[in-house]
């Protein structure tokens, strides 16, 4: 369905754009039909940039993103609009996704105006109401309101409904429940998981391991713009092989287990200047000489890739 091949994003920073910041370096992975893939990373890992590149909101510096053999980077004008019929996104902050001075349901009107100008107003509002019911909202309660009158959960459902109005095939869900309250977030997550039955593929971007584990078949662990580990979610959680993944799983607060006493190594420097080496080099307890070269993801068992020289070595 959607394929990323060595996708790279370089930002020019500094006074005259003299410095390069590799936000994303040579990331390759694939999302298959009707599959939920989690893209897991902490802030600054480049996970949102990848989402935005897929959505054609940020340009690609190098590499390619293909949707069923269609080169996403080259799209513009009408072709891009057609792409947006099939691919949509929902973002983290429900309140920032709405223009605060207009009513929230204006987003449906925009879709009507831009994509279905031929559909009559009556038909359209019937379709909107149907879709709102599909995402678990009562149209009477939520239409004709301003964003601040609706809860975060309702706003996120609105955005999912907006995407569904377009008969999409692929949804980028960027941290969509991280700002919601505990009691409502799980319902939005369930809704998302249910979309798969409608034939959608989803890229679920998150920093929360337990959410990724809950919803997705496969997971991609991202660290400083590079893929550290990817594979079936279960394999990654039960048998993490990259030292970063291991550290993540050990430090994430859980309700069934207390933290172990071992000190966690925090990041010390800014995410620049890793032109050649492993991006986890400065924090890695296993780092050795070879790590000054960037490791490439190696398939250590079927479908399980790890970008670490140590993990690639046969166990002693």
């Amino acid at each position: 369905m959607l394929k990323l091949d060595k996708v790279t994003k370089i930002y020019r920073v500094g006074t005259f754009g003299g410095k390069e910041l590799h936000a994303v370096s040579e990331v390759s992975f694939e999302v298959r039909d009707r599959e939920v893939v989690s893209l897991i990373g902490e802030s600054g890992s480049g996970k949102s940039t990848i989402g935005k590149m897929i959505l054609h909101l940020v340009s690609i510096s190098d590499g390619s993103i293909l949707l069923d053999d269609l080169d996403v980077a080259a799209l513009k004008g009408e072709a891009l609009k057609e792409y947006y019929r099939k691919v949509q996104g929902v973002f983290q902050d429900p309140f920032s996704s709405y223009n605060p001075i207009f009513k929230a349901d204006r987003i449906f009107q925009t879709i009507h105006d831009e994509f279905y100008p031929d559909v009559s107003a009556g038909e359209w509002s019937a379709k909107v109401e149907r879709t709102l019911k599909d995402v678990g909202l009562n149209p009477e309660h939520v239409l004709d309101k301003f964003p601040h009158q609706l809860s975060g959960g309702q706003l996120q459902r609105f955005l999912i409904a907006r995407a569904l109005l377009l008969d999409i095939k692929f949804l980028v869900a960027d941290e969509i429940i991280s700002m919601l309250d505990a009691s409502t977030r799980i319902d939005v997550l369930n809704l998302l998981a249910g979309l798969k039955e409608l034939g959608l593929s989803i890229l679920f971007i998150t920093h929360d391991l337990s959410l990724a584990n809950y919803i997705s078949e496969r997971a991609v662990i991202l660290y400083r713009g590079c893929v550290a580990e990817m594979g079936a979610t279960e394999k990654i959680f039960t048998n993490p092989r990259h030292p970063y993944t291991q550290m993540l799983i050990a430090s994430v607060p859980r309700l069934d287990r207390k933290w172990e006493a071992q000190a966690s190594v925090e990041s010390k420097c800014a995410p620049t200047g890793y032109a050649s080496g492993c991006v986890y080099y400065d924090r890695c307890p296993l780092a050795f000489g070879k790590c000054k070269r960037r490791p490439i993801p190696l398939e250590i068992e079927p479908g399980h890739f790890v970008a670490c020289w140590k993990a690639a070595e046969p166990p002693v």
Binding site: G153, D187, N213, L255
Partner: peptide, 25 residues
């Protein structure tokens, strides 16, 4: 009770056990 049971934990999967939130607001 409802709050604690709605928290996704590592190991819980949608395909195996669906958690539920608290209806209403």
């Amino acid at each position: 009770k409802l709050l604690i049971s709605s928290l996704p934990e590592i190991g819980v999967k949608y395909s195996e056990r669906q958690l539920t939130g608290i209806p209403g607001k």
